[in-house]
Amino acid sequence: MKTGRSYIVCLALIWLMLGCEEEVSIIQNKDLVFTHSYPVRIPPYEYEGENGQFIQVRGDSGFESNSIDTLSGEPVLAWEGLENQLVSVAIFTEAIEVAHGEIIASDVIWKWNTGMAAADSNRIAYAEGRAVSRGDYINEGQVPDPLPPGHYYWAVWSWGKSGTTIIYSSRQLEFYVPN
C-alpha cells in the first residue's frame, strides 16, 4: 500500500517537472510591429542634425498623439533597453507589414544590426547602418546616402537568446524628410 503511494507520488513529480518547462507567453499587443512580443520603448529624444540644429524625435508619444516627426536625411534612431541582445533597426519607405512572423522586406531602404559597429548600441546614427535594396545590403563598406525627401517608417526589433524568435519590438514610427 505504501509502495503504491510512493509510485504515484513519483509519477506526479515527474509529470510536474515535465509540465514546468518554460514557455514564452506574451500578451498580444497590436500596436507593436510584431504583435506577439514585448514592447521596446522609444522615448522622446533629440539629436544634432547635419546643419548643427537640434532635431526633436517624439518617439512613442508621437505614435500615441498621431503626430509625425520631421527629421533630417541622416536621422539618429534611439530606444531604451535591449542591451546585449540581438537587435535590428530598419527604415522603410512604406508602412511595415508583417506576415507569418516575418517583416516583408521589400520596402526596407536602410538597416542596422548588432553585428555592425556602433558608438552606442541603443542610439544609432544613420551613417552606422547600411543601405538596403530588396532586403539585401548594397554598397557595402560605404556610408549610405542621406534619405531623399519623403515619408518614412522605422522600427526596432530583437530576438530571443537563441535568435529564432522575435521577443521584443517597437511600434511603427513615422517621419518626414523635408525638401
Binding site: E21, L86, T114, G115, W159, S162, G163, T164
Partner: peptide, 23 residues
Amino acid sequence: YITNFTVPVETFEGLDPREADSS
C-alpha cells in the same frame, strides 16, 4: 528519454552563433 538537443544558429555577420535548444 527526454532529450535536450541544441543546434547552432548563425545570426548576423561578425557575431558568434547562437544556440537553439529543443526538447
